[in-house]
Computed example of a mutant assay.
Amino acid sequence: MKLPFQIDCKDKVVVITGAGGVLCGMFAKAVAKTGAKVALLDLNQAAAQKYADEILIDGGQAKAYQCNVLEKESIQLAHDQIINDLGTCDILINGAGGNSPKATTDNETFHLEDLGTMKTFFDLDQKDVEFVFNLNFIGTLLPTQIFALDMANKEGATIINISSMNAFTPLTKILAYSGAKAAVSNFTQWLAVHFSDVGIRCNAIAPGFFSTEQNSKLLFNEDGTPTQRTAKILAGTPMNRFGEPEELIGTLLYLMSQDASGFVNGVVIPVDGGYNAYSGV
């Protein structure tokens, strides 16, 4: 992996949650190239270990940890292991999150005749909505509670949350995910103010639409043509394409760097190909 520009995080400890996933695993590999010691946290430790092994083979420093971001005891255990193995946290990247089909409606807009024929807003189960909301919001709050205290008054201490363009304008069908990411954006601003006196900056990245192996079946038909929903997404994206995962790295490194973004605090940066700027006409 070639970084878009270089920053020096030599010997800093960077903790990344959700690091077994495609995007956060890529983040971990990019962060390792800055000289940082990377702690990869994921519920699926084997998935995080895969990326940690790739970092180690490439000459970087990394270690994978099993961690459930919805259980404070699990995060505390990972925290204590990281201190013993790598040292105290300097930079926290809250990347754990995601959606669930169980918290998604089948229809974009409601019609009475849909009742009994598909999953509507009225059929969503509270537990399924709570799971998605908690995974994204509580899964950002709890790791921050555990790791931020170690970051207080540390030079260059930074928290980077992963929001979404859904936080700016909710997408149809995925009400729980959109609401949760809006909460993450609001929480990011709240933290920026709350931690201002102890020198911890807090910002967020809001990815637009990125095509990965994980969502390819949702975006494309078996013959490779775009689904109807994909056609709508591309029509609303001025650059008329999906983002490549690597195109998030520059914004991540910028927010990590005290030299580059030391006076940037409490912002949510869209990386969306112009999606948020386009009114549709």
Score class of each variant (00 low, 15 high):
residue 8 D to V: 00
residue 11 D to A: 02
residue 11 D to S: 02
residue 12 K to I: 11
residue 13 V to W: 13
residue 14 V to R: 00
residue 29 K to Y: 00
residue 42 D to P: 00
residue 47 A to D: 11
residue 49 Q to R: 11
residue 55 I to E: 01
residue 61 Q to P: 06
residue 71 E to A: 08
residue 73 E to G: 12
residue 73 E to V: 08
residue 81 Q to S: 03
residue 88 T to F: 03
residue 91 I to N: 11
residue 94 N to I: 05
residue 95 G to P: 05
residue 96 A to Y: 09
residue 97 G to F: 04
residue 100 S to P: 06
residue 107 N to W: 11
residue 107 N to M: 09
residue 125 D to F: 07
residue 129 V to Y: 12
residue 131 F to Q: 03
residue 131 F to M: 09
residue 133 F to K: 03
residue 134 N to R: 10
residue 141 L to G: 00
residue 143 P to W: 04
residue 148 A to G: 10
residue 154 K to E: 08
residue 157 A to E: 04
residue 162 I to A: 08
residue 163 S to L: 06
residue 173 K to D: 00
residue 175 L to E: 05
residue 176 A to E: 00
residue 178 S to R: 07
residue 186 N to L: 13
residue 188 T to D: 08
residue 194 H to G: 04
residue 198 V to A: 04
residue 199 G to N: 08
residue 200 I to V: 08
residue 202 C to D: 06
residue 203 N to W: 07
residue 205 I to P: 06
residue 210 F to D: 14
residue 228 Q to A: 15
residue 233 I to L: 14
residue 238 P to Y: 08
residue 244 E to V: 14
residue 248 L to M: 14
residue 250 G to S: 08
residue 254 Y to P: 01
residue 254 Y to H: 15
residue 255 L to H: 09
residue 263 F to G: 10
residue 270 P to V: 07
residue 274 G to H: 13
residue 278 Y to M: 05
